[in-house]
């Protein structure tokens, strides 16, 4: 009974999330937007790179930043997909209190609501990768691609991001007014610390530990290695670590981050009940 409620609420929440995500009056516009947005942001990056390096697209650095940027799109998507649900349900649909008094597992419900963003995010990542492969000669060699490693890393990373999203959802729950864009803001804030478009060595020494503490850093490195392993050796930072080491560190940092996230979410949840914030509306 309990499992069936959990599974069903997760599935219903995913379905609802998808309905909301795809609720564009014009599906054509929705599709165009989904293609153009990732391509536009990738083009800016490519343009900057080509100016700085005088069009040196054969440098492994290009693959490094192109892939890092492509996969980083998951971060704001998942973080905001999950945390925005609190604002959406509380302020817009006014249903959060009814979800709360139902016997659903709230984190599972929130994860479900985030699934749609994961799907559209995956689409954006795929488009970006395809464009890189077809037009920009990002050196994919599918003979060399380590698919098991790729999918393992991808799944682990998405779970890790979902837990971070839960943490932001908790914060949103207790900060009634100030977290409208918390998912995007946090994602942009972390961008520079995760080695997404340049290696951690570029950061000042005292800022590097931030990058090394973030599971996202190892996740991006693993995705790059699994896709373009043959030239990944040229990327600095983690040359001394094997794939297995990286997976281990990703697991460990995700575990720690996840435990902190769950702990803080429960704290926020408790505090929201204490302060009567679950059905508050700020009328913004």
């Amino acid at each position: 009974m309990k499992n069936s409620i959990s599974l069903r609420s997760f599935l219903s929440a995913s379905w609802l999330g998808w309905k909301i995500e795809s609720n564009w009056t014009d599906p054509f516009l929705f599709a165009t937007y989904s293609i153009i947005k990732p391509l536009a942001s990738a083009s800016i990056l490519v343009l900057m790179y080509s100016i700085v390096t005088d069009q040196n697209f054969n440098n492994p650095m290009f693959a490094y930043l192109y892939l890092g940027n492509a996969f980083y799109q998951y971060v704001p998507a998942v973080l905001s997909g999950i945390s925005w649900t609190i604002i959406d349900d509380r302020e817009h649909y006014r249903t959060l209190k009814y979800i709360y008094i139902a016997p659903v597992n709230i984190p599972l419900y929130l994860f479900g609501r985030g699934v749609a963003k994961f799907i559209t995010g995956s689409f954006a990542v795929l488009i970006t990768l395809l464009a890189g492969f077809l037009f920009l000669k990002v050196p994919f060699d599918f003979q060399q691609t380590n698919w098991p490693l790729f999918f393992l890393s991808l799944i682990l990373g998405i779970l890790m991001l979902a837990l971070l999203g839960l943490l932001l959802a908790g914060i949103t729950l207790v900060t009634a007014r100030h977290s409208y864009y918390i998912g995007d803001v946090v994602a942009s804030g972390l961008f520079l610390f995760t080695g997404a478009i340049f290696p951690l060595e570029v950061l000042p020494v005292w800022l590097r530990p931030v990058g090394y503490a973030l599971p996202i850093t190892y996740w991006l490195e693993l995705l790059r290695r699994s896709l373009v392993g043959n030239i990944a050796k040229a990327f600095p930072t983690f040359t001394s670590m094997s794939n297995f080491d990286l997976i281990l560190v990703l697991l460990l940092t995700s575990l720690i981050a996840g435990l902190i996230a769950i702990f803080l979410f429960n704290k926020c949840n408790h505090s929201a009940r204490e302060r009567g914030l679950i059905d508050i509306s700020t009328n913004y």
């Binding site: 309905k19 909301i20 649909y93 006014r94 009814y98 008094i101």
Partner: peptide, 15 residues
Amino acid sequence: INMVSGGETSGYGLL
């Protein structure tokens, strides 16, 4: 349990 509050328009409008 379950609960309903009157005088409000909660619900997912797009469903």
